[in-house]
């Protein structure tokens, strides 16, 4: 039932024959201009290293406060989870849930699952348990992971308060900046490469 020499444009259904690309080359659909696939971008090993780094930075970004605010000698620190908890406590539960999912739970799950898949394929040379379900979960979570939006949101919040009290950025905010960069690279990763990597393994 398979026809793997073909590639079909996801955006307009035109069929092409797959050709090998050089590094940094991208195959575009002639009819609609959408991206079909890319040439070899990154070794899976590099990807694993990036995922592990993301996990470390994710922990730092969540442990340290993002911003501190000083008003008449009283200081308030705000961590990511603290912000989510405060939104929950003030009665806007839906916003708290939205933020918890898109800035905390989805990115963390993405990092952990990708790390598990890559680690098991590359280090243990074993087909990961639950591979198919994890791949579906990764694909569905991708558009809902919004660390980069939250970063800009934090900057806007700092400026808004600046008129009211003294605010300054804390280590968590810098870590969040690094995490945004790392996750952008991780999210650009073509998940189809993992299917190929799994098929290359012997039974």
């Amino acid at each position: 039932m398979q026809a793997s020499k073909f590639i079909v444009c996801e955006h307009c259904d035109v069929v092409y024959q797959r050709a090998d690309l050089a590094r940094k080359q991208t195959a575009l659909c002639v009819r609609c201009g959408a991206e079909l696939y890319r040439g070899p971008t990154m070794q899976l090993q590099t990807m694993l290293a990036l995922v592990v780094t993301s996990l470390v930075v994710f922990v730092i970004a969540n442990v340290y406060p993002l911003v501190a605010m000083d008003m008449h000698g009283v200081e308030n620190h705000s961590t990511l989870l603290g912000a989510i908890g405060a939104a929950w406590n003030t009665g806007v539960g839906s916003i708290a849930v939205l933020a918890a999912l898109t800035v905390f739970l989805f990115p963390l799950t993405q990092i952990l699952l990708l790390g598990y898949l890559l680690g098991s394929l590359l280090i243990l040379h074993r087909k990961p348990f639950g591979f198919i379900d994890i791949m579906h979960a990764l694909r569905l979570m991708r558009p809902w992971s919004m660390v980069e939006v939250f970063l800009i949101g934090a900057l806007v919040a700092v400026v808004k308060i600046a008129g009211m009290a003294e605010v300054h950025a804390e280590p968590g905010l810098y870590a969040l900046g690094v995490l945004t960069f790392l996750l952008t690279v991780v999210n650009a990763f073509d998940l189809r490469l993992l299917w190929d990597a799994r098929e290359r393994l012997p039974e």
Binding site: A99, M146, G153, V156, A157, K160, I161, A165
Partner: peptide, 20 residues
Amino acid sequence: GQWSMLDIFVVALLVSLVDF
């Protein structure tokens, strides 16, 4: 698509920060 979530995050952060 996801960038319109910006204001939601700003509100969530302000709620937690400005609590004196």
